[in-house]
Amino acid sequence: MTATVPARRRPGLARAGRQLHAGPFAYAVLALFTAGSLFPLVWTAVAASRDDTRLARTPPPLWFGGNLPANLARAWGEAGMGLALANTVLVAGTIALGTVLFCTVAGFAFAKLRFRFRGALLLLTVGTMMVPPQLSVVPLFMVIARLGWTDHLQAVVLPTLVSAFGVFFMRQFLVEALPGELVEAARMDGASSWRLVWHVVFPVARPAMAVLGMLSFVQAWNDFFWPVVALTQENPTVQVALTGLGRGYVPDQAVIMAGALLGTLPLLLAFTFFGKQIVGGIMRGAVKG
């Protein structure tokens, strides 16, 4: 990129391009926003490291106390976190994979193939994004109950295994990113639609698939409303387990914060270790409109 910059560019000329180094002002603003982003999370840990009475005092605690291990242990035990975490990994993983596969092929069909009712079906898909999720709970629960799935993990997995947003997202990405010539060339080579998906669509869609997978995973991990109805404490996901937390004799704020921390920690760790890949994925896969 840099190589293509014409040499005759006047030095010091304002250029909003990426090559410009950030000044101290930019760093200051970024630092401010970063602090704002991290503070509530750090403070969750601070609160989780104190005891309930200390959290009631002013000024509020600003630094860590010594109760973190004890509170984490209590939260782990009370909420049955082990099973909950395993369940959540299974649920969120399945949903992420399913969403990515199904939404990619559907998005491809909507983006590049012609078929009858395409417009109508796409409209229907986008329309579903607008259905408030609180609405479907009763009929959805009837379906689940009819299938005998209450308190089973598939009650949480299957209803969210595909998402209208995912289809829309993949379609938007593929419309731009997948050149029509590529599809036609493959066709002229006599490739079947399935080979086309395999060899052309998936490779091109990979960044967007990664983003969609990450988004679905995070969303499934944090989903709360439907799992609380469909599951019980016997077989919970993390968010369901957290609703039973602090039920000890009296809700203990520090333990509740420790539970919140436990439920968030796996995702935070993933963001810390794979931050570069996740951010890179979003950058490459972001919908360009």
Partner: peptide, 25 residues
């Protein structure tokens, strides 16, 4: 015996009603 606790009644009771309506759970 296995106990399942929901912290607050305003979350517990609607769930009970939903389960009663569906005859399941």
């Amino acid at each position: 015996v296995k106990e399942s606790v929901i912290e607050r009644n305003d979350a517990y009771y609607p769930q009970l009603l939903t389960h009663l309506a569906a005859g399941s759970g």
